[in-house]
């Protein structure tokens, strides 16, 4: 039975279906709670496409996007999600903030709290930083990526993409390939996909493979061709250019030789296997253009679309208590 079918959300009354105050990670979420967020996101996909009567349920609420690490895509996605729901969205870029003047993270958090934000979205370069802030503020906190720890909305949007394109997540063979060691996307995806009963394989050169990763319920591979065998989904990770110059990998062309997703390689996966990438892509390094742009196989632009829907769902769900939604207050 697919884990996503475990306990239909409709049978659980009100806020009990998602009792968490924050979303700091996939860790700690029950499978039915993940499925609930995916179901909620589904509702926003059609609304976003139709652009009918706007739903401004977050009107009057202040959403602060506190990004201590540079980001374009995720920040934009959270901003659009908040604005679609009618929230007043304020972006705080660490590069322009008092963080550079030596203010500590806790002080920054207390400042944001004192400004009476209704929801705070945080990205930070240190693992655990978001949880540290979540403990200090009164409003819900959404993790938009902390160090190499977690990036929960990315995992949710990836799960949603897989569920829509493949019909289910249960028993899907998902290969996550790339810099698993430094990747928060990989960690959150491993947690979400294993919780929803997918078969997860991770693939990387040993220099980029976290020790004891099999303890997270995945099968590690160093041979990409072997990992791809019979795959339903191939999820490529971005490799930072600074890690391709001898530190972890000898060169980008050697990386492409061993781990680049080419059409030829993709043939080892199932004929209808889905190709995913969290972006931004290094075309010609981890993924070839004719794979990334493949009309039937690539879900990369769809992932971006799902991202907005998932973030709308998370912002909506996390603010329900404050908005005194019936059954949640």
């Amino acid at each position: 039975m697919p884990a996503s079918d475990h306990r239909p959300a409709s049978l659980i009354p009100g806020g009990a279906v998602f009792p968490h105050r924050h979303l700091t990670g996939i860790e700690g979420l029950e499978p039915h709670e993940i499925a609930f967020l995916l179901d909620e996101a589904e509702n926003w996909i059609a609304a976003n496409r139709e652009r009918g009567v706007p739903d401004k349920r977050l009107a009057g609420l202040t959403q602060i996007n506190a990004f201590f690490e540079n980001s374009t895509r995720t920040l934009l996605s959270f901003e659009i999600a908040g604005k679609r729901l009618g929230a007043d969205v304020v972006n705080m870029h660490a590069a322009q903030s008092s963080v550079k003047k030596g203010e500590t993270l806790i002080d920054t958090a207390m400042t944001l709290n004192a400004m009476r934000a209704d929801v705070i979205v945080i990205r930070h370069m240190s693992s655990g930083a978001v949880r540290l802030i979540a403990d200090k503020v009164d409003c819900p906190v959404l993790n938009a990526g902390d160090g190499r720890h977690e990036h929960p909305t990315q995992a949710l949007l990836d799960a949603l993409t897989i569920r829509r394109r493949r019909g289910t997540i249960h028993n899907q063979r998902v290969v996550i390939c790339g810099d698993v060691l430094h990747s928060r996307v990989a960690r959150s995806n491993i947690l979400a996909l294993t919780a929803l009963a997918a078969e997860v394989r991770v693939c990387a050169p040993s220099t980029l493979m976290p020790p004891a990763i099999e303890r997270m319920g995945v099968t590690p591979f160093t041979d990409f061709d072997a990992a791809l065998d019979g795959a339903d989904v191939v999820m490529m990770l971005r490799l930072q250019t600074e890690r391709m110059s001898g530190g972890y990998v000898p060169s980008s062309r050697e990386y492409h030789l061993r781990y680049g997703l080419t059409l030829e390689r993709l043939a080892r996966a199932k004929p209808d296997a889905l190709v995913m990438h969290p972006g931004p892509m290094n075309r010609g390094v981890e993924i070839d253009s004719n794979v990334a742009d493949h009309a039937e196989r690539s879900a990369i632009t769809e992932q971006v679309e799902m991202g907005v829907a998932v973030r709308m769902a998370c912002l909506d769900v996390l603010t329900r208590r404050a908005r005194r939604v019936e059954g949640w207050a």
């Binding site: 693992s127 190499r148 960690r187 976290p210 020790p211 990763i213 303890r215």
Partner: peptide, 14 residues
């Protein structure tokens, strides 16, 4: 290095 460091995403040494 170990399961805890891997789960938390902390840089770890053997």
């Amino acid at each position: 290095e170990g399961e805890t460091a891997t789960r938390l995403g902390l840089s770890a040494a053997p």
